[in-house]
């Protein structure tokens, strides 16, 4: 029996908007859950339970705001922005400021294990990201993973462009220090 091609995001979105089709929304969630949860795991510094909670919140907000989605953008990009905002709201609710003075949330168990094997980029990147402050993490994820411009990222994070650049610069310095073995390997 031939396998039917999966409907495009736009088709599923239209079905949700037209008839509140829960199965269509479930298909959207199944398709994008991995990327959204991965992004949030990176933003939360590897806190999987928190990342999954925020991912749930992301899809709930996406469902509520689906009528506002403009088809000229990719659905995944739109979801990633909602996910980043959900994480930022989580930080604000806990009064964790995205300022230059914030203290890096270092999990030394993850970050400073120099004897761990260097073969796995994901693992090393997780450890390196755990050293970054929330602001540095957010800035680097927005600009490098989500491919936003400095202006877009600054607007999303609610800080001046100069502050964002400082976050990126400091974050990159920390990442370079943690990932030096990969520079030599490249």
């Amino acid at each position: 029996m031939p396998i039917a091609a999966e409907p495009a995001d736009a088709t599923l979105i239209a079905r949700v908007l037209a008839g509140d089709d829960r199965m269509a929304f479930a298909a959207l969630v199944r398709r994008h859950q991995s990327a959204v949860r991965s992004l949030l795991r990176r933003l939360t510094g590897g806190q999987h339970a928190l990342a999954d909670d925020l991912a749930q919140e992301t899809f709930l907000q996406a469902y509520r705001k689906l009528a506002q989605f403009r088809a000229d953008a990719r659905f995944s990009t739109w979801l990633h922005r909602i996910a980043t905002n959900a994480w930022l709201q989580h930080l604000r609710a806990r009064r964790i400021e995205l300022s230059l003075d914030d203290v890096p949330a270092v999990d030394e168990g993850l970050a400073a294990d120099d004897e761990a094997p260097r073969a796995d980029l994901q693992l090393d990147m997780n450890r390196a990201f755990a050293v970054l402050s929330p602001a540095e993490r957010a800035a680097i994820v927005q600009c490098y993973h989500l491919d936003m411009s400095h202006e877009e990222a600054a607007a999303a994070l609610g800080c001046p462009v100069g502050t964002l650049k400082s976050h990126i610069s400091r974050g990159k310095q920390k990442l370079k220090a943690r990932l030096r073995a990969w520079e030599l390997a490249s």
Binding site: L121, Q122, M125, I140, L175, S186
Partner: peptide, 10 residues
Amino acid sequence: WLRQLLREDG
């Protein structure tokens, strides 16, 4: 190299 690494990671 770092940008390349971040892109690969993504």
